[in-house]
C-alpha cells in the first residue's frame, strides 16, 4: 500500500512503487487533467508539481513521491496559479488545449521561482513543454501578463 498526498488529500493506493504517477492519477484516481503526450518526459503534457517544483508525472515512479506534496491542475490554488490561469483565459491561449495543463503547471513553477521572467527565462523554463498547435506566442505573452498582474 502506498500513500500519496495529492492536492492536500491522502490517497491509499494498492499500486507498485514503479507505477508512473501519471497512470496512478489518470487510471486509478480518475484525475484526467494531467495528460499523456509522450510517456518519455519529452513533451511536458503530464507536468505536475512535487513540493512546488515541476515534475513530469510520466517519468515519476510513485514510490519516489511518497511523503511529498503533489499538486495537479485540478488542485491549483494560490495567487500565482490564479494569475497564470487568468492570463491564459484573458489572452485565449488555448487551441486544442491538450498540452495546456502542463504548460500552466510549468508556467506556475517558473513564476514561483522568478518573479519577472525575461524572454530568455521563458525559453529555457518552458523548453520542456511542447504545444503542437503552436500557441507559444500567447503562452509567452500570458506568462508576462501573469508576472505583471502579480507585481
Amino acid at each position: 500500500m502506498i500513500t500519496l498526498n495529492i492536492n492536500g488529500q491522502n490517497h491509499d493506493l494498492d499500486v507498485e512503487p514503479e507505477m508512473p504517477l501519471l497512470w496512478v492519477l489518470r487510471d486509478r484516481l480518475n484525475m484526467t487533467g494531467t495528460k499523456f503526450g509522450c510517456g518519455v518526459a519529452q513533451c511536458g503534457a503530464c507536468t505536475v508539481h512535487v513540493d512546488g517544483e515541476s515534475r513530469r508525472s510520466c517519468s515519476t515512479m510513485v514510490g519516489d513521491v511518497v511523503g511529498s506534496e503533489i499538486t495537479t491542475i485540478e488542485g491549483l490554488d494560490g495567487k500565482v496559479a490564479k494569475a497564470v490561469q487568468t492570463a491564459w483565459q484573458k489572452l485565449d491561449v488555448v487551441q486544442c488545449g491538450y498540452c495546456q495543463s502542463g504548460q500552466i503547471m510549468s508556467a506556475i513553477a517558473l513564476l514561483s521561482m522568478i518573479e519577472k521572467p525575461t524572454d530568455a527565462d521563458i525559453d529555457a523554463g518552458m523548453e520542456g513543454n511542447i504545444c503542437r498547435c503552436g500557441t507559444y506566442q500567447r503562452i509567452r505573452a500570458a506568462i508576462h501578463e501573469a508576472a505583471k498582474s502579480l507585481a
Binding site: T32, G33, T34, E74, Q85, V93, V94, G97
Partner: peptide, 12 residues
C-alpha cells in the same frame, strides 16, 4: 473552450 482547457476540466 478556454475555461475547461485551463482548469483541467475539459474532457478529451
Amino acid at each position: 473552450d478556454t475555461p475547461g482547457k485551463t482548469t483541467g476540466k475539459a474532457i478529451f
